[in-house]
Simulated scan of single mutants.
Amino acid sequence: MATKETEETEELLKGQAEIWKYMLCFADSMALKCAVELHLADIINSHASPLSLSQIASSIVASDPLATPEISYLTRIMRLLVRRNIFAVHHSPDGGEPLYGLTHSSKWLLRDAEHTLAPMVLAELHKWMVDPWLCFSQGVKEGGDQFQKANGLDIWSFASRNPQFNQLFNNAMASTSKVIMKAVLSVYQDGFSSIESLTDVGGGIGGVISEIVKAFPHIKGINYDLPHVISTAPPYQGVTHIGGDMFEAIPKADAVFMKWILHDWDDKECVRILENCKKAIPEKTGKVILVEVILKADGDGPFDDTRFYFDLLMLAHTNGRERTEKEWKNILEEAGFPRYRVIALPALTSIIEAYPS
Rank of each mutant, 00 (worst) to 15 (best):
G207N: 05
L102E: 12
L122P: 01
V293N: 11
I212L: 00
Q237E: 15
A280W: 01
R76G: 14
H241F: 07
E11W: 08
P227N: 04
E142F: 05
Y355Q: 08
M246F: 15
A159Q: 10
E8L: 10
P65L: 04
W128Q: 13
L102C: 08
W260C: 14
R323F: 05
N45D: 14
L312F: 12
I155C: 10
K279N: 13
E248T: 07
A280G: 10
L12H: 09
D200P: 01
E292Y: 06
K279Y: 06
C34F: 13
L348A: 12
Q189W: 00
I331D: 06
D145E: 06
L117Q: 06
R339T: 10
F147M: 10
E70F: 08
G95E: 08
E10T: 08
Y188V: 09
K326P: 00
G238M: 01
N276I: 03
A150R: 03
L38R: 11
Q164G: 11
L51W: 14
A354I: 05
A2T: 14
G95Y: 11
D154W: 01
K329A: 15
E325K: 07
E196L: 10
I209Q: 04
Q55D: 11
A253Q: 05
L295H: 04
F216S: 01
S357D: 12
K141E: 15
A62M: 11
F87W: 12
Y236A: 10
A31W: 00
R84N: 10
E334R: 02
S160M: 02
T306N: 01
S193T: 13
Q138W: 07
F165R: 02
A88S: 15
E196M: 11
G243V: 04
C34R: 12
D131Q: 06
I222T: 14
L32N: 02
N151Y: 05
L168A: 09
K252L: 09
V271P: 11
Y224Q: 05
H104I: 06
L40S: 07
F165Y: 14
L38A: 12
S105L: 13
K220G: 00
S137D: 12
C277N: 04
I331Q: 01
V213Y: 06
A354S: 07
G96L: 09
P356E: 11
S177F: 00
H241V: 02
A57N: 05
